[in-house]
């Protein structure tokens, strides 16, 4: 009896700690007052302001575009890595391969961002491309950043599932390619979708790497938001957060739905 009370209390306090700030943010987005912290009354005016703010809308579109593209590329390459690591025996310099595909997981974003920026500058000095940084350079950096996250999901899924199904199909006369497209890929499809969603969210949310690799005409949403809230508060950002939080939480729920590994 006593221990179950402790248990409920711990879980309640933990969830309270996790959700309280998010609720505060959403609550204050409905505040009529221009001064963010002083409650004046319920109003949707900041949502109206938000949708009239061209800078934010434009940044939002750029962010979605970059996130969708880089998630797609990262998923294709990440699936290839996950598949190679689990199913293909002969990988030249395998330790190096593992190093390349797992280091981005632990590398501080700041270091990755700096290395990408210096790379693009050096590349430009040598071959004259890319002449300026912008959406393309953010896209390339985000793909690099996200590949490892997709790879780890696919790797876990492939390690889990029974190789016999693939072998049985081979025995039945399917060739290698056919097994991959007709058996393996459909089975791991939910994990592929989960990987894409994760990569999409990481790209959409990234501030540090994008700040390093951005250029004219490529202000992503986090860059714009950061410039608004770095030194103070902004009621428009409150409204934006409420919308974005809900959208991202829904994406997260989809992720759990597809990534069945979570459900034991």
């Amino acid at each position: 009896m006593k221990s179950s009370l402790i248990k409920s209390t711990v879980i309640f306090l933990g969830l309270f700690f996790l959700y309280f700030p998010i609720l505060v943010l959403i609550f204050y987005s409905f505040n009529e007052n221009k001064r963010v912290m002083v409650w004046k009354g319920f109003s949707l005016s900041w949502y109206k302001e938000l949708f009239n703010n061209e800078q934010i809308i434009e940044a939002f579109i750029i962010s979605i575009k970059i996130a969708a593209l880089s998630a797609t590329f990262a998923t294709i390459l990440g699936v290839m890595i996950g598949y190679s690591l689990v199913r293909i025996r002969k990988i030249p310099f395998k330790s190096f391969y593992i190093f390349l595909s797992s280091t981005p997981l632990v590398l501080p974003e700041l270091i990755l961002g700096l290395s990408m920026l210096l790379f693009f500058i050096s590349l430009n000095n040598i071959i004259g491309f890319p002449s300026s940084r912008g959406q393309l350079t953010i896209f390339i950096s985000h793909v690099t950043f996200c590949i490892a996250f997709v790879a780890i999901i696919i790797q876990a899924r492939l390690t889990d599932f029974n190789k016999n199904i693939e072998e049985a199909a081979m025995d039945l006369g399917y060739n290698y390619t056919k097994v991959l497209y007709k058996i393996t890929l459909p089975i791991i499809l939910p994990s592929i979708i989960a990987g894409w969603l994760l990569a999409f969210t990481i790209s959409l949310d990234d501030l540090v790497v994008a700040s390093f690799t951005t250029g004219p005409g490529a202000n992503t949403l986090p860059i714009v938001v950061f410039s608004k809230v770095r030194l103070g508060l902004s009621p428009e950002v409150n409204a934006l957060s409420a919308i974005l939080m809900l959208a991202l939480i829904i994406i997260g729920l989809f992720y759990f739905y597809f990534n069945k590994k979570f459900k034991h």
């Binding site: 309280f20 700030p21 998010i22 963010v36 809230v229 939080m245 939480i249």
Partner: peptide
């Protein structure tokens, strides 16, 4: 399973905005 999803879901919402939320909470008139 429900608790696990509940614990991880905040991680999916924007990092920058979760930090910003604490800025609101910890203000002098927060």
């Amino acid at each position: 399973n429900i608790l696990l999803v509940l614990v991880v879901i905040p991680f999916w919402s924007s990092f920058l905005l979760r930090v910003y939320a604490w800025k609101i909470i910890l203000q002098n008139n927060g």
